[in-house]
Design a protein around this nucleic acid. Structure first.
Lengths: 233, 233
DNA sequence: TGTATTTTATTTGTCGACAAAGACCCTTTG
DNA sequence: CAAAGGGTCTTTGTCGACAAATAAAATACA
């Protein structure tokens, strides 16, 4: 069933392996929201004692990806459908501010990186690789944020983007290829604004892009009804 | 020299005690930036084994308050004078957005809380209690952010405010009582805008307030020269 | 049959011990 | 006299074990 990754870890690097592996599995919904986390099991899986496993879990907890109830179980954090407007509000603001700063502070190296990632995204869209689209889209916007050179925005934005990845994965089966194609064009426009150092244009495009994404996610949720799974009364 | 806090902890709550204690000591500069953290020593001090101490340190590390070099020492994070403009930029944006949302989403309970904290701040100013001013000012703005009801903004803003507390503590001896008095008045105006649900006025006042604070901190730093301590070439 | 209460089992938090990694100090050597 | 090498000491990361806390099961009781 489960593949055991029998790796002998270099002292001090086991924790980060566990952290990154679990982080990915949570964001990619390989670990379902709400599902319990068994320390013993992880201990066996990574052939590490429970101490480093626990340390990785503390880190994930700080990221808000897992929830620990003291002296009781620790579970993968649920997706908070009730707080979605807060999420969208913050996401939109971060889209705007990072793209704006990207236009102002980008170097030519930044542009090269952003273009590469846009290429990846366009490829994923062309191949109708929905899961690839989700991750490459995230990386594209994260790169713009990095070009903006403000670590506080980068931190918050990547957190929001990853939270968004979880949500999108829930609905990726509802994707059609119409809107993603539009995204490719919007991305191109943003890149052009960033190259031109046109902060206002970048801001404007980012706002429209964010609104577009928010509207789409909202429509997925509306037509699905799954959002009530959390509302057990 | 050091007071030993001989407390027997209820199972599962030792970590949070250590975390909160150290967190405060770091923010209040009782632990100097750059100073090494001795796990053994903390273990003795809190009468806990190194395991829960370590867990608390991981949490602090996630907050960016300490820096751990794998297999080497762990130190209290340095104040990053080189990245101050990023800090001020993010701080100003969060001042604006939280005050704006505070005006839009506040309840009457929120207003009561905010008023209480403003009273505390005014008292600290009246008594020329500089350290008290720093913390009550932080609590005041944090309460406005909470009234804004967006946890992403609250998280980032409190992080920024606490980072600001560390910086202000460095210069608190340079405080005079002129500007703080001005802050009291600015706070009152902000409260009024929040009560009136006047988001634009709140935004405008927050911007001015933030600019004021940023300008003051900048002037402290300029007249001090201590900022070069990190620039060892 | 349904609800307390005790018993058992599982899981979590903490401990002390140990070994790897690095810091420190001293000597050697070019 | 500086750099390299070697030995010792300290600190960090990991381990296995144990006990407290809770969950689950079993039993008693109305």
């Amino acid at each position: 069933m489960e593949e055991a990754e029998k790796v002998t870890h270099r002292r001090g690097y086991g924790v980060s392996t566990v952290y990154e592996t679990l982080r990915n599995e949570i964001i990619e919904l390989k670990l379902a929201p709400g599902s319990p986390i068994d320390e013993q099991q992880l201990s066996d899986r990574f052939s590490l004692s429970r101490t480093p496993i626990r340390e990785a879990l503390v880190r994930l907890s700080a990221d808000g990806l897992i929830t620990t109830l003291t002296n009781r179980a620790t579970i993968v954090s649920n997706i908070d459908f009730l707080g979605l407007s807060e999420f969208f509000d913050a996401l939109t603001l971060m889209y705007r501010v990072t793209t704006r700063l990207g236009a102002l502070n980008r170097t030519t190296d930044d542009i090269a990186r952003i273009r590469d990632l846009q290429k990846d995204f366009a490829l994923a869209v062309a191949e109708r690789d929905v899961l690839g689209m989700i991750t490459t889209n995230r990386d594209f916007h994260a790169a713009i944020a990095v070009a903006g050179k403000n670590r506080y925005y980068v931190d918050l934005f990547t957190r929001l983007l990853d939270e968004g990845r979880r949500i999108l994965r829930l609905y990726y089966s509802s994707f059609n290829d119409v809107l993603p194609r539009q995204y490719v064009g919007e991305h191109e426009d943003m890149i052009q604004a960033i190259i031109n150092r046109d902060a206002d244009a970048a801001d404007h495009l980012a706002t429209a892009h964010a609104d577009q994404i928010v509207r789409q996610i909202r429509s997925y949720i509306a037509t699905d009804g799954r959002q009530n799974t959390d509302l057990k009364i």
